[in-house]
């Protein structure tokens, strides 16, 4: 992932921190990203919503500075025209229809009554709420309210869309529709920041990730870059070998092996390895020299969830990053 500035970056954080009293919201973020689609991944309370609050100008940093689309969100309100935000909070608007609500929000952006209504109808159709446009929002299902929130985020035709947990409350069909819409958005060359704690859903939309936990950015990069990072982190690897005992004794001497566990399944070893790349090289040497035989190696599958779990474990200072039950 590019970390240097371009003509107009999507955002730039410079030592960005935000404190809620003594509680850290965001901790010393230093990052610069070009325009594109990104996923902000982190568990609840990781600082995703706080970061979104800072990007939108709703929150003021305690320390540091940020720029979004080349502008300081606190210094100029015109940035609001270029950003669409779909917050995570529940939509609790009472006594109004989705059409009325969208017209209000568009008119708050300075649209005339006529154009606001035309655009509201158009966008309600886009999110599949055209048949429910005259129903009060509080009578909507959770999924419909989620789509209504999305509609307001894209209604004023922003160039940068920020979504906080957009898949919450959606049924499988709704999730698919939401994913399709976001994929189309990204394909159209518009920027996107998708905050979620559900990894597989965001992986379908973008392969650029930022992993956040405890207000800190743990890692960022494309899926490929993160997988390479994964290869350098301690992880569990399962080896299927008919020469299990021989293999176990050979591995036990290696300094980068943290634990070797004989599994209850025959011929299976579970290894906790500090430097997986060295294991793979060593195993290939042993196999080619006939010292051991190996039927199958199942490493961490390289998915982001594994990496995320590892990074969080490391961030928390846990000794056994992956498998607390593993032992030598």
């Amino acid at each position: 992932m590019a970390l240097s500035g371009s003509v107009e970056n999507l955002f730039e954080f410079r030592n960005l921190s935000l404190m809620y009293g003594t509680v850290i919201g965001v901790n010393d973020l230093e990052l610069s990203l070009p325009k594109g689609a990104y996923a902000l991944i982190g568990p609840n309370g990781a600082g995703k919503s706080t970061l979104i609050g800072l990007i939108t100008g709703a929150l003021r940093p305690t320390l540091g500075s940020l720029q979004v689309l080349g502008e300081n969100p606190l210094a100029t309100r015109r940035l609001q025209e270029r950003i669409g935000v779909c917050p995570a909070t529940e939509l609790l608007v009472h006594g109004v229809t989705s059409l009325q609500w969208l017209v209000l929000l568009l008119r708050m952006s300075g649209w005339s009554r006529m154009l606001a209504k035309e655009r509201a109808l158009e966008v309600l159709e886009q999110v599949g709420l055209q048949d429910a446009k005259d129903r009060h929002i509080h009578t909507y299902s959770l999924g419909m309210r989620q789509r209504c929130k999305l509609a307001q985020a894209i209604a004023h035709r922003p160039e940068f869309l920020i979504l906080d947990e957009p898949f919450n409350g959606l049924d499988p069909v709704g999730r698919h529709q939401m994913t399709e819409l976001l994929v189309q958005w990204a394909k159209a060359g518009k920027s996107l920041l998708l905050a979620s704690h559900v990894l597989h859903e965001v992986e379908q939309v973008t392969d650029s990730f930022m992993l956040i936990f405890g207000g800190r950015l743990l890692a960022s990069g494309t899926a490929g870059e993160l997988r390479r990072l994964l290869a350098d982190l301690p992880q569990d690897i399962v080896v299927q070998s008919e020469t299990r005992d021989r293999l176990a004794s050979l591995l036990a001497e290696k300094p980068w092996i943290r634990a070797v566990h004989r599994d209850s399944i025959p011929n299976r070893l579970v290894l906790t390895v500090d430097r997986p790349m060295e294991l793979y090289e060593t195993l290939s040497l042993w196999v080619s020299s006939g010292q051991v035989s190996i039927e199958r190696i199942t490493g961490s599958d390289g998915d982001i969830s594994t990496l995320f779990r590892l990074l969080i474990s490391r961030h928390r200072g846990e000794r056994a990053y992956q498998n607390p039950g593993a032992h030598r």
Partner: peptide
């Protein structure tokens, strides 16, 4: 309280107009 503040906040003239 109605969690609708953010929607006004992110509009160009949202807060003042509200």
């Amino acid at each position: 309280e109605g969690q609708s503040w953010l929607y006004s906040l992110i509009r160009y003239q949202g807060r003042r107009a509200l």
